[in-house]
Write a protein that binds this DNA or RNA. Structure first.
Length: 205
DNA sequence: CAACCGATCACCT
DNA sequence: GGTGATCGGTTGC
């Protein structure tokens, strides 16, 4: 397992969104514990020219990390109850990010379930595992991601408690569709997921 | 400074 | 398939 590079994120969001599939998000906890999940579904959000992106109306206190250096966590709160996590892309000064839509849980499953306020049965059912981290709001709750404590964190720093790593996993086939849950630029195929993976959110093709 | 609304989810039928 | 919950950021008065 090695950290991704800053240059990995200094590319176009649609390139990074595709490249992040198969990579591993690591959340370091107290007392040496950790949670980890493989990225199986992403969406690209472009810069000021993407009407569906938070960067479209220019730099604000809420979205300023999108305009900063690549490889930092852009976290926002929505629908009055959910957090969503993105990683900033493109060189400093140019907005763009990738939204994490689903993870395949790898490590720290008990902690994830606790953070999601339920208990896993033994043996775990496929339904329970998918319920942990399948969906942008769910995965943030599972990893205990909060805007107040995690906004702007550097995910390629060796000292960060929120990191993205490469464990050598090879993605076989990637599928592309329009993005979910938006009302503008709906025709752009900027959602990416690992074809056939059981932890992808939603039911659409 | 008040009103509007959402890159969602859980639970209902 | 439908819908209510719930609140910070943004916009318009």
């Amino acid at each position: 397992m090695e950290l991704l590079s800053r240059e990995f994120f200094a590319r176009k969001p649609e390139v990074v969104a595709r490249a992040l599939l198969g990579k591993v998000v690591v959340r370091r906890l107290a007392r040496g514990k950790r949670m980890a999940g493989r990225i199986v579904e992403t969406e690209a959000y472009l810069g000021v020219n993407d009407p569906a992106a938070h960067a479209s109306s220019g730099k604000t206190p809420r979205n300023q990390v999108l305009f900063g250096p690549p490889g930092h966590a852009y976290i926002y709160f929505t629908y009055g109850m959910h957090h969503c996590m993105n990683f900033s892309c493109q060189p400093e000064g140019f907005a763009g990010c990738v939204l994490l839509r689903a993870l395949e849980p790898l490590d720290g499953l008990l902690q994830m379930a606790a953070a999601r306020n339920f208990e896993l049965s033994e043996p775990h059912t496929q339904r329970e595992l998918k319920n942990l981290t399948s969906g942008p709001g769910r995965l943030c709750q599972a990893l205990a991601i909060h805007r107040a404590s995690d906004y702007g964190k550097d995910v390629v720093s060796p000292r960060s408690d929120l990191q993205v790593m490469d464990d050598g996993f090879q993605v076989k086939k990637v599928a592309r569709t329009p993005r979910i849950g938006i009302s503008q630029a709906m025709e752009l195929p900027l959602r990416f997921y690992i074809a056939g993976n059981a932890f992808v959110s939603g039911n659409r093709s």
